[in-house]
């Protein structure tokens, strides 16, 4: 079987402390790729040490951060994001941000990795959760829209890369008329609040949940654009 693939297997971890990690595992396993990937559910430092890249799934960001600290992986995760590709979905996107608004009382722990600030539960409670079609130019079959599932989703507030940081690319944006009330602005085309998928260097962030659909084109994108180039 091995001659089918080029190069060594790439180990992609999924942080499996709490949340929808099994869905990411299923999506990754269905990808058809030129290189072999191995999927690792990460609960300990030993698991993390084996990974070439990491996905932080949706879940509750406060719960995931607390479990990371109690399991002794919080600092190793912070070191990991400085070196290797990481993709955060929803709660994972919050953890990858530099600063967060609407955090729990007393603040919450983040990993950093992307030069943005983000607001938790930007749309409000669960009854405001929604689905919306996204046009994403970077995906395979880009003419086919991607169904974004936004569940108590965070909202990107500002992009603040310092001169030394890699530039931030907007991978997908939401039509501005879908923004929560009070979030609309004059210059909607360049309003960060419409940005729902961002890439900075080898890091990817989505405020919605590609793992809840049967469409694995975002997983394909992460592996092709962020992971493979970083793991020659």
């Amino acid at each position: 079987m091995t001659e089918k693939y080029e190069g060594n297997a790439v180990a992609i971890g999924i942080l499996a402390l709490q949340g929808a990690f099994a869905e990411h595992q299923t999506a990754l396993q269905k990808l058809s790729l030129t290189r072999k990937i191995e999927v690792i559910l990460v609960r300990t430092v030993e698991d993390l040490d084996r990974c070439d890249a990491l996905i932080i799934p949706g879940g509750e960001s406060t719960t995931i951060a607390l479990l990371a600290r109690l399991s002794g992986v919080l600092q190793p995760l912070r070191d990991f994001v400085l070196k290797k590709p990481v993709w955060g979905t929803c709660a994972g996107a919050i953890l990858l941000s530099q600063t967060v608004e609407g955090a729990k009382k007393g603040g919450q722990e983040l990993l950093g990795g992307m030069s943005i600030s983000i607001a938790r539960n930007g749309w409000g409670s669960q009854v405001e959760s929604f689905e919306a079609d996204l046009d994403v130019a970077g995906l395979r079959d880009a003419e086919r829209p991607f169904t974004g599932i936004f569940i108590r989703a965070p909202v990107v507030l500002t992009l603040a890369p310092s001169p030394d940081d890699p530039p931030i690319e907007v991978v997908a944006r939401l039509s501005s008329d879908l923004l929560p009330e009070g979030f609309t602005s004059e210059d909607s085309a360049n309003d960060p609040k419409t940005f729902v998928a961002l890439r900075q260097g080898r890091h990817l962030l989505t405020t919605f949940h590609p793992e809840l659909t049967q469409d694995n084109r975002f997983h394909d994108y992460f592996v092709r654009v962020c992971v493979f180039p970083a793991t020659q």
Partner: peptide, 19 residues
């Protein structure tokens, strides 16, 4: 109306898994 679809309803439960 794309609010309150079964996808976002069951999706929130999926986010609670392992919790």
């Amino acid at each position: 109306n794309s609010l309150g679809t079964f996808g976002v309803k069951s999706g929130l439960a999926q986010m609670l898994k392992g919790g």
